[in-house]
Design a protein around this nucleic acid. Sequence first.
DNA 1: ATAGGGTTAG
Length: 596
Amino acid sequence: MASIVSTPSLFHSHFLLFSTKPNPNSQPKPPFIPSPSTTHPELKQLLYHKSKVGFDKLDDALLVFDQMLRLKSGLSVVDFNQLLTALVRMKEYSVAVSMFREMRVLSIPVDIVTFNTAIHSCCHLNTLDYAFPLLAGIIKSGWVPDVFTYNTLIKGLLSQDRPLEAGDLFNKLIRFQEIQPDAVTYNTIIDGLCKTSNTSMALKLLRKMEEIGCNPDAVTYTSIIDSLCKERRVDQALVLVSEMTDKGISPDVITYSTLLQGLCSSGRWEDTERLLTEMGVRRIYPDLHTYNILVDAYCKEGRTTHAEDVIEIMIQKGVPPDSITYNALMDGYCLTGKMDRALEVLNTMRSNEIWPNYYSYNILINGYCKRQELDKAISLLRQMRVEGIKADVQTYSTIIHGLFQMGRHNEVDNLFLEMLKEGTKPNIVTCRILLDGLCKNRYMDEAISFFRVMECKGIVHDIQIHNILIDGLYKNGKLDEARNTFDKLASRGLQPDVITHNIMIRGFCQEGLFEEAKELLSKMETGICLPDAVIYNTIIRGSLLNKRYGEAVVLTENMRARKFSEDASTTSMVLDLLSKEEQDPSVLAFCKWFLQ
DNA sequence: ATAGGGTTAG
């Protein structure tokens, strides 16, 4: 009998097909049973509760939906909205969308909240294709899109990496006065600006909010504080914290966590301690996020013992660690070369019923690859398969990278094919690894044809991968093709970076085209892509290679004037010259001048 | 009953 209640009704079993969440191999909880005699008030109370916390199991939500369809007449649109909200809480977005569709088919009354919840769910799927038709659906049904609708859509566009369209929508709303944007609207746009490295524009919009009387809140400030921290402008972030406090906007646990992350990643450990004390005084208690930030920060510093201490405190304080906590810890042990300890963490996780995910395995695989223990990395990949955890692009990319570095390039082909067969698409990083591996192992023809294929698919529109190709072409003596690729960058809309320039300057010098190298350097000196120490060293070595000792002096002076200095390979080249050509007085003079 | 900010590698 128990099997009947724990099985979803046949009618709604198709929702399960759309469930985005993997079925965890955890112990089943006792099933929730809405008995046919459940009364309206009982059901309504249950829905109210579940809309706050979500159902324990998806099946329970489906059974409730069944029950609601039977009791339809006595239920209101609010009850159905609460069910959809519960699904959103459970991150079962595709189920929510399917259920919304079902409701429409069955002519169950909906309102603007139902539509907004459905749009919100669509925005969390990997496409917005259904979100905008729903906007049209609102109008067709005689409702008016409200500020929730637009805020949801703007956020959806931003999370699908479509910031321009998000900005357009925002501007349109203001221009045509469709709705009055509220603080949430501004906060969403401000966060979008921050995450596209437009922090100064975000700050301007914050001032605009104040100007028009749409008061910024803790969320507004936290977005900008986070952005400043990530740009390593922690002191400016701290200024904003005092500004918000002065205005009576209290920093909350998220603001503090954001700052904590900023302080930790710039190594300001004393300030971190002070901040944690301040949180205690203000009775703002660290949550799971906060602790995870701390654990991760300690691990990245190699202080795994401190990380273990934090985990101990978490457990004591009733904030149990999750997979992110343990993954961070495993990464810490990998970083410090303690692979055995890292594997132990995997077992600790299992015994605490926190199931390792692909991420956990990727950390271990990366650890083994770095230690050049490729066979262990590969056996973990097999273990993933046994446990039913799907490897992702990163899993494969890491191992392919490791194989190339170990000179095991003949195994790469099979692994790459295996990846494609599993339906895992290579990304730009995979392409960089493959192209670099082919070039470094002198498979230039394969490298070029691989590049062409990637070019056709439009996934190599990136300066870094061009750098790899140009470098490979030079190192394999294909000088004309290297220059050709460089010359074509602009027409492809790509901006050469310092690395491109370094490769080209080195190439020109090796070809004896010293004038061209110099021209490229002076272009850089007047442009936006300023030469760094590496560039100067490259061209100084190039000048020596071309026996242009006078120019070597000028270049060295230029470099030193910019507070850069010679590197080991330039110095050893000079020492080499000194020992070989001591009979030539101009060489001797240069070497002595350089080394003094 | 619906919208916005913080944590994970190659």
